[in-house]
Design a protein around this nucleic acid. Sequence first.
DNA 1: ATTATTTTATACCGTTCGGTATGAAACGAA
DNA 2: TTCGTTTCATACCGAACGGTATAAAATAAT
Lengths: 193, 193
Amino acid sequence: MARQREFDEDKVLDAAMELFWEKGFEATSLSDLTSRMGIQRPSLYSAFGDKKGLFEAALRKYTSAHAASIRGKLQTNSSVKEAFRSFFENLVAKEYGEDPNWGCFCLNSMVELAPHDEKFAILTREHQMYLSVIFQETVERGLRSGELDPGINAKSLAQTLVISLIGLTVFMKSRPERTFVDNSVREILTLLR
Amino acid sequence: MARQREFDEDKVLDAAMELFWEKGFEATSLSDLTSRMGIQRPSLYSAFGDKKGLFEAALRKYTSAHAASIRGKLQTNSSVKEAFRSFFENLVAKEYGEDPNWGCFCLNSMVELAPHDEKFAILTREHQMYLSVIFQETVERGLRSGELDPGINAKSLAQTLVISLIGLTVFMKSRPERTFVDNSVREILTLLR
DNA sequence: ATTATTTTATACCGTTCGGTATGAAACGAA
DNA sequence: TTCGTTTCATACCGAACGGTATAAAATAAT
């Protein structure tokens, strides 16, 4: 028995996510947000609490979608080596296709907020842990099928691939020459012997 | 024929560097800066131009010292494998010793500013390029001495080590369990076969 | 139609932002 | 000592910040 919302909470959260992803937490103002989200301040505050609450909601939505996307990409290919190869190569191709390139929202947040806010340290760290589990499951699939060398330590390799993914993603924010990144990808993939 | 400066430009720049390193560009206010640097605003503006000019001066000072430090560490050990091993292990030990952990000022800046400011994209990218040259020279030393497998591509390996360094440094900002990082370091070092 | 409840839009709050005008204090040269 | 120059400290600028008080508009139940 009341007035109904005129905005779709999920839609405006996407708009906020884009903005935070692009500019980070501090550099994004409430005026930026309300104008891009198409709602007024009181609506924003009643729906998400405050600026940091909105940021957290946006980041949680991002990590959830990001993890699902990566899991999907790694499952499409029956060959594990091929799956990782196309995953990393598509990652690079995508970042060089877009201009400019905002990197990964979760890593941006890890750099900006994790050392100052334990909640975001946990949130961003747990996302990387989850990615390492996805990677590990994929490596173990390759071990079971015999595609990968049985001497491989699935967990260590998966964790190293996460570190490599982070390094590549962050470094590409500075738009280095593509050969640098291509060389690294090729080298990293040799760990999947 | 005039009044002399009462502050040491190099000293106050160090103070600014620490603050920007810790909090980033946006989250650091001029009041933060002047209070930590121990000078007044007009002195800051006359010496460094504006906030971004001060930030750039601080970052240049950081990258220069950072590169020299890394070059020094890699030269101390006659064994190249041992040099990289101790380099990465000390990196990890140092980050876990300090609490909290501000990561690398250059990488923090790459994430926060590179996509929005071409000057900082270049500055941070060039620093990584320089690190890759230092790494490459070290790998080539190992090739010449016969310590490393002649099949190794020095440039690709060096670039991959830079990517790994970036990934490790950024990930450690979220204070993950140390075994994760240790596993990755061990795995990465296997590339130095 | 009236009423209770929620969301909307506007306008505003005190605070802090990056940056600067101003004049006194401290020098070196004459 | 006087003068010209530079740096110092203070105080201030308009603008933007994150957040909220207020009341009109819109709904569903009575």
